[in-house]
Amino acid sequence: MINRWLKEITDIAGVEGVLLVSDNGHIIEKIGTQLDQGTLEQIARRILRIITAHNLDEKSVKEIELICYNYRILAMSAKTFTIITFCGSIRALSLLRITVNVVVGHLIEDKKSMKQIGKYTGQPEIVLEKEYLDQLEIKLISKLQ
């Protein structure tokens, strides 16, 4: 079921791949991307670090977008999971946003999907643990606490 919903996103022209990530950075599902597992895990962890750091400051992030000229990464976050989309040159950006939003909504409403996601959720603060951080990250995160 999760795979079917994520496919709705990858069907949009320009989308190169999509990840479903749990709140602690675990990759639950991936479609389409050519990047290796290690790189994807690092990307997921860094995006989750932004989201979890915002939560520390009681600012819930709904959406993050990284724009590198003709390449974008769009991350949309729900409480226990985040959908990360990798896009090349994309014309229908609004369509992509709406579709990802709809997929987030469907996943939240679908009990089977949430049960599957639930197997991997918990301890989101793990992405902020010192052993995974460099000096600058430690310094910046200490200012939030």
């Binding site: 990307i43 709904k62 724009i67 910046l140 939030l144």
Partner: peptide, 29 residues
């Protein structure tokens, strides 16, 4: 501090993707 961290993580992600540095990072809370 929060946004400096967000920017730093975004830069690292660009590096992982072997792309140019992120031109913009946008966040919606």
């Amino acid at each position: 501090a929060l946004q400096a961290l967000s920017f730093y993580e975004a830069e690292k992600i660009s590096g992982l993707l072997k792309k140019e540095k992120s031109q913009f990072i946008t966040l919606v809370t």
